[in-house]
């Protein structure tokens, strides 16, 4: 196999990795906010259930969670999912895992907001939704951005865990190629890919942080 052929295969893996990354962020960032609301809910049942969910997601390996999502439907309900389910299971597993982490980040940000902001909003007549989305959330986002950046960088590297479900993303492809061709190049290429991907993430997040620099 020529180097070009290897790179074409790696590029296909790269597309899948990018897909896992994008879908996970698109789902888990808003889902995390909902989870954070549940975690801070006045309803004790909801609060406890959500707290338990978060602790499971944070307290067990993501690899194991991916397997549960993938094999669960068969072992629990006898459902045979088609082979296309591998990628879906990856999306679901990553999204619910990252939503738990983001929820805790949102929660710490929301709880760090001074109560005076809520009181000023109430006196000025803002409704609950307006207060949250106009006054609180923008400030929370600024506060939590560094923690979110950390999480996103971890996600780039975590996407390689999809190899557990034999999803042909960057890492699985590189590993398979390296073994079949007894050649280090695919692994080096994968390493460079993750590194450049994260440089890009860091660059974008820095720009976003700069964009929010207009106030303190």
């Amino acid at each position: 196999m020529t180097i070009q052929q290897m790179l074409v295969q790696l590029a296909e893996g790269m597309v899948i990795t990018t897909q896992i990354f994008a879908v996970t962020l698109l789902v888990s960032l808003p889902l995390g906010l909902l989870v954070a609301f549940g975690r801070m809910s006045k309803n004790p049942v909801l609060r406890t259930v959500v707290k338990f969910y978060i602790s499971i997601m944070r307290g067990t390996p993501l690899m194991l969670q991916l397997m549960v999502v993938y094999f669960g439907p068969y072992y629990l309900f006898g459902l045979r999912m088609g082979s296309g389910y591998r990628l879906w299971a990856t999306f679901i597993g990553f999204s619910i895992n990252y939503a738990a982490y983001f929820a805790e980040i949102y929660r710490s940000g929301i709880q760090s907001m001074p109560v005076g902001q809520y009181e000023a909003a109430q006196i000025l007549g803002y409704g609950k939704g307006q207060t949250f989305f106009k006054i609180i959330l923008p400030q929370v986002i600024k506060r939590i951005l560094p923690s979110v950046t950390n999480e996103v960088i971890t996600l780039v590297k975590d996407t390689s865990l999809a190899f557990t479900l034999s999803v042909a993303e960057m890492f699985s492809t590189a590993k398979a190629l390296a073994a079949a061709q007894t050649n280090m190049i695919p692994l080096v290429a994968a390493g460079i890919f993750y590194y450049v991907f994260n440089l890009l993430v860091a660059f974008i997040m820095e720009r976003v942080e700069k964009g929010l620099d207009y106030y303190r």
Binding site: G116, Q117, I123
Partner: peptide
């Protein structure tokens, strides 16, 4: 809507 309040520490919206 009939009343307003001015706080000791202002509580302006920083953003």
């Amino acid at each position: 809507s009939q009343y307003g309040l001015v706080f000791q520490n202002f509580n302006l919206f920083p953003h």
